[in-house]
Amino acid sequence: MSRTAFRIPAPPEVVVAPARLLGQVVRALGHRFPPSDRLFTQMHNVGNNSAVFISVTLGFLGLILVYQGCVQTLKVLPDLSGVGAAFIFAMVRTFGPTITGMMIATRVGAGIAAEIGSMTVTDQIEAMKVANSDPVSYILGPRFVSCVVMTPILWVFGTLVGVLFGYLMGHWRFGIATQTFLDLGLVSYHDVVIGFLKALSYGIVIPVLAADAGFKARGGSEGVGWATTTAVVNASFAVIVLDFVISTLSFLLGY
């Protein structure tokens, strides 16, 4: 009996702890929403301060995807008219959200983990607890809301920048006409929804994983280094896995 019985294995700690933290922060936000001044500071940090970084990375990505696309297409066909549409489709649905998500995991995730980690190792988190202030609500609350709001916005921004640079490459290097390149024919309504869902899920997961690593920091500066590293790796990996899960589900559902 016991050998044949199907037992669900206990989920590993790396999943359980962030899930619990997510529950805590959502409950804390329902209880008390962060005041707007602290929220705007964080939104500015997550959104505006990431804009240049995301422009550079997504810009280079757009350039290179169109370059490769054109070069490879020219090997089989002399006609480049389909490249723009395929590129925009891939940007909206996959590369836009996922590379933006990876970049936010890198910049914002590392930032949150570094901040919370150094607060943890210098006992600031304990000082909050003993003053009856909830660190999850006070520290993570505004950062969580900012990430959830700003990641989809940065997805739109990053996708636009990527498409713009891709267009520049296609237009100037390969002479594709503007109307031919900026062809939204392959992008349908549900591609946009899927891109948005991906961005939103990254926005939820990144701050929670980063904060989890930060709260677990132990020791001095090694602890902070550990927390930051862990946050970047876990958050980036979570972005890839979520992208895979959402893409697979949408494929299987026929969207």
């Binding site: 590392a110 570094a114 901040e115 980690g117 150094s118 210098t122 500066s221 902070v224 927390a227 930051t228």
Partner: peptide
């Protein structure tokens, strides 16, 4: 410690 975090 914050210096290390920022550097990373």
């Amino acid at each position: 410690a914050e210096g290390v975090g920022r550097a990373v």
